[in-house]
């Protein structure tokens, strides 16, 4: 039953048509939210007592760090879906997400570096969180290169899914690294369980920027998944009608 349901709604054709309708709304609303939060955060919040103006990079750094892990979780879910129900769309999504994940992780790392110069006095520190994020970046690159090294796509999809699932161990390590090791890196500003350790005047634009950034990245994933579908389903007749 579930299988039938998934296959009906997760056919690349339905996905493509549905996503085209939704794309516009997601793009414009998240673009609005992100610009709005940025303007609010950059211009209308007071300076940080300790860090001065340099803290304002959190409106890029925090969303990017958050997304770098969320995208991996999304890949892991897609992998499980692909291996259990053989949903082709899930496989396309894994490959569509990987390069974007790599990009976002790179943004997280580099914005962190820039932030590190004024606050820590160094742009790189071999602490647990930075190192584990670097490893996440390497994993994204490894996933991409593994997939491109196969000529048989179905084979590559299966192997890739297994690797994504096994590599999932890294995610809890990144999450917990700030608590487990003594480090320069500050612990998370927002958690679901505790009260935020950050002033509300900074908090609201931060939440806004996370939501906005999230939406913009989803738009990128949509575009990238469209490319994958067109590439992989190029022999199908429905695609010719679509194009």
């Amino acid at each position: 039953m579930i299988k039938k349901f998934i296959h009906q709604f997760a056919s690349p054709k339905t996905y493509l048509y549905q996503i085209n309708r939704a794309y516009k709304y997601i793009f414009y609303s998240s673009l609005f939210i992100y610009t709005f939060s940025l303007i609010w955060g950059l211009l209308f919040t007071p300076e940080d007592f300790v860090q001065g103006n340099s803290f304002r990079i959190i409106y890029l750094h925090v969303p990017a760090s958050f997304l770098s892990q969320s995208l991996y979780v999304a890949m892991a879910i897609a992998s499980v879906t692909y291996l259990i129900w053989r949903v082709k769309l899930a496989a396309y999504l894994i490959i569509a997400i990987a390069p974007i994940g790599a990009m976002v992780t790179f943004i997280a790392l580099s914005s962190g570096s820039i932030w590190g110069i004024p606050t820590w006095g160094t742009w790189w520190q071999w602490d647990a969180r930075i190192t584990s994020t670097l490893i996440l970046f390497i994993m994204y690159l490894g996933l991409i290169s593994l997939h491109t090294s196969f000529s048989n796509h179905e084979k590559a999809d299966k192997l890739l899914s297994w690797l994504v699932i096994v590599g999932f161990v890294n995610i809890p390590i990144i999450k917990k690294s700030v608590d487990w090791w003594s480090t320069l890196h500050q612990s998370a500003s927002i958690t679901l369980t505790d009260r935020p350790s950050i002033d509300p005047s900074m908090l609201y634009p931060l939440i806004g920027s996370i939501i906005g950034f999230f939406g913009l990245i989803i738009c990128l994933v949509i575009i990238s998944s469209k490319v994958q579908i067109i590439k992989r389903e190029s022999t199908k007749s429905w695609l010719k009608d679509y194009v």
């Binding site: 490893i135 994993m139 996933l143 290169s145 096994v166 590599g167 890294n170 390590i173």
Partner: peptide, 11 residues
């Protein structure tokens, strides 16, 4: 390639 992609798991 294989060693590179499994290296993070050994971390």
């Amino acid at each position: 390639l294989g060693a590179l992609i499994t290296m993070p798991l050994a971390l």
